Simulated scan of single mutants.
Amino acid sequence: MKFPSLLLHGRLVSRYKRFFADVVLDDGTAVTAHCPNPGAMLGVNQPGMGVWLSRSDDPKRKLAHTLELVEVGNGLVGVNTLAPNRLVAEALAADAIPELAGYQTIRREVKYGEASRVDFLLTHPGRPACWLEIKNCHLSRNPPLAEFPDCVAARSAKHLRELQAMVLAGDRAVVLFTVQRQDCEAFSACRDIDPKFAAALDEAANAGVEVLVYACGMTTGGIGIDRRIDWRR
């Protein structure tokens, strides 16, 4: 997935009200950027951190800039929670995720469960349908371990219960965590931050929901699904 524009570098001043980030660009210009991340952004929201912004010339946008990447250590972390679905869509189209390859039809935002929409529904003649939920992961308090969530994630726990229902109905169900950083080699649920989500993930896996975790390749030019990493229960 290529970024929509050449990214601009700056320093984070403040992230506030969930969807706003004040940034001073390297040329000294102060801008307010859209922050497409409703989570706590633990570890990637400290003032002074290096950040990378995309810019849109769309006159309908209230904010021209979007916070895309944060510099952590010697690497980059993707904080745009809209990116994972785009990354996975590209990977599915290219059969780049072996566990999800070979489906004839890929549909997005299909209604299911309790007033929910699954991120992807994969179908193929003669095979059970595959209901696929995507979760964004950028938290790593103790590299090389990635963790999810970084705040209470009741809606994500609900999605896991709905995936279980698909398995009980005879279909396949998968939750795919996309880790938008390269310094992680394993993944775990954050039991201290949201024990209910961690328990829901265990329950879903025990019921037959497949848990996949993929780390991403990160550059200032774009992001791509890179390699599978282990889930530590």
Rank of each mutant, 00 (worst) to 15 (best):
C35N: 13
K158S: 02
G221L: 05
E99C: 10
I223K: 06
S56M: 09
G50P: 10
V174D: 05
M218L: 14
V211A: 04
G102R: 09
E147S: 12
C130L: 14
I134L: 10
V70I: 05
A204H: 06
L12Y: 00
L82M: 12
A165N: 11
P36A: 10
T105E: 15
R18G: 02
R227I: 11
V79L: 00
S14Q: 14
R108T: 11
S5T: 10
L176C: 06
F177V: 13
K111H: 06
N80P: 11
E109L: 06
G75Y: 09
A115M: 05
D119T: 04
H65E: 07
R232D: 15
R117N: 11
L168Y: 05
K62D: 05
R155Y: 09
T178V: 15
V79P: 00
R55N: 10
K60T: 15
V79I: 06
R181M: 12
A173G: 07
P98M: 02
V175N: 05
G224S: 13
R172D: 10
R227D: 13
L168S: 13
D119H: 06
L139G: 03
E71A: 08
C184D: 03
N45F: 00
P38R: 07
I193Y: 10
R191D: 10
A30D: 01
N74C: 14
A91D: 00
F120S: 05
V110I: 10
N142E: 15
R11D: 11
T81H: 04
P59V: 05
D226T: 09
V211W: 00
N142K: 15
G50K: 08
T220C: 13
H159W: 02
G217Y: 09
N206V: 10
L25G: 08
D194G: 09
N74A: 15
A30Y: 01
K62N: 02
A154V: 14
S188K: 14
V72M: 04
M41S: 11
A154T: 15
R181Y: 04
H124A: 14
K111N: 05
V174L: 10
A146W: 01
E133Q: 03
D226F: 08
P143Q: 02
E109G: 02
S54H: 00
G113F: 02
V167W: 07
R55S: 12
R107K: 12
E99L: 11
W231G: 08
G10P: 10
C137E: 07
I225N: 03
L100N: 03
V211M: 04
V167I: 15
I225C: 05
A204I: 06
A101Q: 01
L87S: 00
D27P: 04
D26I: 06
